[in-house]
Design a protein around this nucleic acid. Structure first.
Lengths: 343, 343
DNA sequence: TTGTAGGCGTTATCAA
DNA sequence: TTGATAACGCCTACAA
């Protein structure tokens, strides 16, 4: 037994009207302009609604209104807290303007991303925020062309055909490596991949820029390529590092994100490498778990909530402002120094 | 310039029909029973759709169909990976039956939970999975009474008015403390709170049960109450522990969840307490970050994905099977021993 | 194989 | 203040 009121599921304004002995229009008025209804009929209608378990049908409202009151965020990987924090920022902004947020997780699968996009379009969401598997995918253009505003989050596109919010990853990479150089390191590993990821490319470039600017010999900065930005990949990279003879081994590693750094930290620790004495560590993103690690992680902070918030504002502007023009917002990252580099 | 095709946003089946020179019914057939349409008219219709940027209107479909093709999960706290993993499990199950999942985050706020529930009801979701702020809240009964199936996740209710999936927290608490007793500890702290949380209460009770069963003096098991299950609370508890004189200080702590344990681990480490030599640590949930900590955390594993998956199955049964009866599924937790207790 | 008509629940307009 | 009516876009009988 489901224990539901019999027949209650389908009570509509019509049923309410009948039960309250008024017309359908009056019920609608109670719902939308209560002031235009005399207090006692309003009472009667309200009571009928409660008795029938009336619930407004959002589909019908939406059909009539022509558009929904929701925003969507298609995240790349819900198991990375970085994206959850972005979602949180979006949610805050959406809530502020009375919109609700639907969250989708593509799990880095283009196919899944595709099906989410299709569904969201059909739902006539006001706008789609997305950290896409591939920012250059034509499917994004298609969605935009058909009329749903699309904003890129933590990704950019050279052709500037979309609004986007991102953080200056080249600068972030520079900051990370400058910090390590400042601390006296002359053998540094960059850990991350795959290099098809825009952010990984940029952070690596920034690292190289900083290295060159300091006049250090190129061979002192080595690239340790991983196949993803996960804890497991970090561990694996840690194993590779720990396996190197001490004289050749880098004295510091700059990881392309915090998950990787956390994995590396664990592997280093269990291999008996002391952090930061024998291996200094810099992560990227500054997720909460970075600061919460046993050896708190130095990391390059991205303004995650603000990223989400700004993205929401951009998509809303595109959805509502006829004068809208695309903008590419670039935030500045900030190095947060903690024990993993400070000995 | 938004770069969208002019007027494309609102192409409907009617427009497509006109453009393709066929009737509205034919277009609908192309969409829903393509086999009943001759290949070349189908081609023509498809081309018209592409040209007009036609996108099915989900609201209209839903309005006609009477119910949506979505499930919803209202999580308690999206920043706790435990709930993200549950969501992942739900998503998998939902995807398997062609449903999509909408995620909401109540952030432990009853008010926000309430507004999410209201919206989901209006959206006529097929069912709502929820880890509620308060499992006994009457608002949950109201939703169910009005006809939307509701399943409790990681929570139970004494009156069994809902389906629920949970893990035996009393047993989990026992396992954790038995493990510590096995390792020879006779002064153990239980860290967690608030005690209004069902799981915290149960884990604490399990801890006490195990303690009593071992015949250990009650004063050896101390409760360190926190105001929440967060990293910050864990740190704070760590400070309290580290501040105690060594002879009185517990030699082990059982934390009510992994976030708390991670915070405690960090604080202990930075206070110079060695884990597990001076302080052994057991967490709860076995989130990925537990195994990824610098000192990998012993934890009580909950089958998170399975929890979500089963919850989805229950809610679907309730939504579609007229013979449905409520069931309370209780999973068995499993202790995963790692370095934080194994020295 | 294709076309026509009616209705899903809501809202807004207009008339009473 | 209240009531009747049309329309949103889609789907499905049923008719041609």
């Amino acid at each position: 037994m489901a224990g539901r009121d019999p027949g209650s599921r389908n009570a509509s304004v019509k049923d309410v009207a009948a039960a309250a002995g008024v017309s359908l229009g009056t019920v609608s008025n109670v719902l939308n302009r209560p002031d235009r209804v005399s207090p006692d009929t309003r009472e009667r209608v309200l009571r009928a609604m409660a008795e029938l378990g009336f619930v407004r049908n959002e589909s019908a409202r939406q059909l009539r209104a022509g558009s929904s009151r929701t925003l969507a965020y298609v995240m790349l990987d819900a198991s990375n807290p970085f994206f959850i924090d972005i979602a949180q920022g979006i949610d805050t902004a959406a809530e502020a303007v009375g919109l609700s947020l639907v969250l989708c997780n593509s799990r880095s699968l283009a196919e899944r991303e595709q099906s989410h996009l299709a569904l969201l379009e059909q739902q006539r969401v006001q706008g789609i925020l997305i950290t896409p598997v591939d920012p250059d995918a034509a499917s994004l253009d298609d969605v935009a062309r058909r009329g749903t505003p699309v904003v890129l989050v933590d990704r950019t596109r050279a052709d500037q055909k979309f609004c986007s919010v991102a953080v200056d990853d080249v600068l972030g990479g520079q900051r990370a490596v400058e910090h390590l150089i400042d601390r006296g390191h002359t053998r540094v590993a960059f850990v991350g991949g795959p290099t098809t990821l825009g952010p990984v490319r940029d952070r690596w470039r920034g690292a190289q820029d900083a290295w060159a600017a300091a006049g250090l010999p190129a061979e002192g900065l080595v690239e340790v390529t991983t196949t993803g930005l996960t804890v497991a990949e970090g561990r694996e990279a840690g194993q590779r590092l720990a396996g190197m003879p001490a004289p050749r081994r880098p004295t510091a590693a700059f990881c392309a994100n915090d998950l990787t750094a956390l994995g590396l930290l664990q592997q280093a620790t269990s291999s008996g490498l002391r952090v930061p004495e024998e291996l200094a560590l810099v992560g990227y993103d500054d997720i909460d778990f970075a600061g919460a690690a046993a050896v708190p992680l130095t990391s390059v902070r991205q303004p995650r909530q603000e990223l989400g918030c700004t993205a929401a504002e951009l998509v809303l502007d595109e959805a509502t402002n006829p004068e809208h023009t695309h903008r590419q917002v670039l935030f500045t990252p900030e190095l947060v120094a903690r024990a993993s580099t400070l000995g």
